[in-house]
Amino acid sequence: MEAQAHAAPASTATGIPNGKLGIWVFLASEVMFFGGLIAAYIVLRSGHPHWPGPEGHLDARLGTLNTLVLICSSTTIVLALAAAKRGAKAAIRRWLLVTVLLGATFLVIKGFEYHAKFSHHILPSTNVFWSCYFVLTGFHALHVLGGIAFNLVVLAWTFDPVSWSARGHRLELAGLYWHFVDIVWIFLFPLLYLL
């Protein structure tokens, strides 16, 4: 176990570090973004008597597996944060790497799903359900990709004592973003696959 002392963020008028407050405001804007898309999906769905249409449903088994993968990744990144609090750098690296791999697994499974649909000539233009499906899951996948990149940057900082000392506290911000991505999927999964 290596002792890790990273620079404490400067004190602020709110008592909350600026970076942390900033990421929460950013996440609030993201809630509005996905909230709008999900609301549009619900309204469109309510107005269509035959949903999702003759092209068939999504495979709930793959959706369930992907949900489990994201839930596990949320746990592993919070374990990385717990490791950071006790100064265990090896554990931080291990949990961050597992988080990144789980995120990549999610994208690979999603890629298989997309490939299966494309090979059956199911495209965003097929009908309104598939338009919604590709828009919602596509934007979500882009957010997963962004989260993986953020986690990889934090992982890289753990190998450089100077960077870790100056920026190590941003692991918490990466975690907050990752949990948000998980929460979005927690709602997308039942809406698209189960209901």
């Binding site: 942390k20 929460w24 809630v31």
Partner: peptide, 26 residues
């Protein structure tokens, strides 16, 4: 997830307000 993994349960109330605000707008 929000309360335990994002630590809203232990964090300052301002963050809870920031988190809740978009839901009011939605």
């Amino acid at each position: 997830v929000a309360l335990y993994y994002m630590h809203l349960k232990m964090d300052r109330r301002l963050l809870i307000l920031v988190a809740l605000f978009p839901f009011v707008l939605i």
